[in-house]
Nucleic acid binder design. Structure first.
Lengths: 183, 183
DNA sequence: ATTTATGGAGACAAGTTTGTCTACCTTTGC
DNA sequence: GCAAAGGTAGACAAACTTGTCTCCATAAAT
């Protein structure tokens, strides 16, 4: 990708994630990145296009991080342990590449762009489906019900960590999941 | 409360919940409610004050509905059953007073108003705490860990129902929770 | 060396936004 | 009948939004 385009995408993602997509104007992105308006509209058709680019970028970073976090799991128990420990590290700002925790960028984007951009919510759905698939691909024994629970608890933990500032939300899931697996 | 003030609050809540707080301007609320701008600023200091009023109103409606939904529960198992069945009815638009499902108004508001209104996020936290307390008050046998799981699964179900359009998200929680309770 | 592409700075247009203010009307109480 | 209170309608201000366009500078390729 072009250097300026990449810079714009990263800067926009930073600001969108920190302050909300609708609260951040194009001019703010330009000022923060030091790029000219002409250049932005040279690379992006509209702000919406830029938003989609930030979603794609975040998606890649997030999936890469998650893939690495689950890489060493060999059993379903491992998977659960690695996943929720990784979430806890994310919530507590121990994952630099995900930047300072501010909830799930995709949940936030979906909430912000309702009735404004159908493409955004579609991409958010896609992201969630991809994450689910990645988790599923690390299951030794396929258990659809367990997969459902893992995904629901993951979403709940992210939301609780963000809205209720419960940074230990993910840790609370572990004993329950573990005790329910060895049966 | 004053008649016009009430009308403004309800109209604003409707529009905010359906289309997003930041996407709905004051003028739209005025047009939809048929109230004059002067009257709005007679009752509300600013748009932020109106937003808080919609949060308070939604909070009351939601808690009233939840209280009624859980009223007949006498055991922890009942509680879980009543709660997640109620959520399923909400997701599937079978609860008129909660209006057409569009996710959790408080999660959405928190996502939209980040770095814009500290009061909004504080109220959202308060709402989540109140809901948790209501659920806790219906527990026959107090089990903090179970309460955590219920609340996390509830948040996860709401998010999944909204973002991933999984309207059966809440139902998926039931077997798991039930099997984990009788041990 | 000159053409071509790219970017910087920012003026500008057209439309938003929130919030104020004026002028008038309607209702209610005395 | 009349005064006070509160609502309506909407003009207006000031600031913001996205997106276009011009002018100029720089750098790379032929």
């Amino acid at each position: 990708m072009n250097e300026k385009k990449h810079l714009l995408t990263m800067t926009a993602l930073d600001l969108f994630y920190k302050n909300g997509i609708n609260s951040v104007g194009i001019n703010e992105v330009l000022k923060a990145s030091g790029v000219a308006k002409k250049t932005l509209y040279n690379h992006f058709v509209s702000k919406d296009t830029l938003i989609i680019a930030t979603l794609e970028y975040r998606h890649n970073v997030f999936l890469h991080w998650l893939k690495q976090s689950l890489a060493n799991s060999t059993t379903n128990e491992d998977l659960v342990r690695y996943l929720f420990n990784a979430l806890t590290r994310w919530f507590n700002n121990e994952v630099p590449e995900l930047t300072s925790f501010n909830g799930c960028f995709f949940i936030n984007a979906a909430a912000e762009c309702v009735g404004q951009s159908e493409e955004v919510i579609t991409y958010c759905r896609f992201h969630k489906a991809q994450v689910r698939q990645l988790i599923a691909s690390h299951m030794q024994i396929i258990d659809e019900q367990l997969l459902d629970m893992i995904c629901l608890l993951k979403e709940g933990a992210i939301t609780s960590a963000y809205v209720s500032q419960d940074l230990q939300a993910a840790q609370k899931c572990l004993p329950w999941l573990m005790s329910n697996m060895k049966k």
